[in-house]
């Protein structure tokens, strides 16, 4: 993708505290990029926590963090790999 100047979208890294989740699926439903999905596994309380399906699509909007009623999910900014920036050639 070509971006204007040095502007790049911020990428997010999602952290899920699985054992704190109660499986309400609010984050899965309302993620605008469909990054999350409900898993089949059980956590210690017997709920199905979500898992990160497609982390590259995450744009750090923090909606999952705000909507989570259990405070069990949060997003941090993903650091871009250095090689990627250096090896990039601009037309």
């Amino acid at each position: 993708m070509v971006y204007f100047g040095d502007v790049k979208p911020i990428k997010g890294k999602i952290h899920i505290k699985k054992d704190q989740c109660k499986g309400c699926a609010f984050c899965v439903e309302y993620c605008p990029k469909d990054v999350l999905e409900m898993s089949e596994e059980f956590n210690v309380k017997g709920y199905h926590p979500p898992f990160v399906k497609d982390e590259d699509a995450c744009l750090y909007c923090q909606l999952c963090e705000t909507i989570c009623p259990e405070f069990a999910i949060f997003v941090t900014i993903k650091e871009e790999e250095e090689e990627g920036e250096k090896g990039e050639s601009r037309p």
Binding site: Q20, K22, C24, F26, E65, T66, P69, E70, F71
Partner: peptide, 18 residues
């Protein structure tokens, strides 16, 4: 004190985050 006592699907936690 977390996890809290609210039911799964309750919206109070969201208001606390807001």
């Amino acid at each position: 004190r977390i996890p809290h006592i609210w039911c799964p699907g309750c919206g109070i936690g969201t208001v606390v985050t807001s």
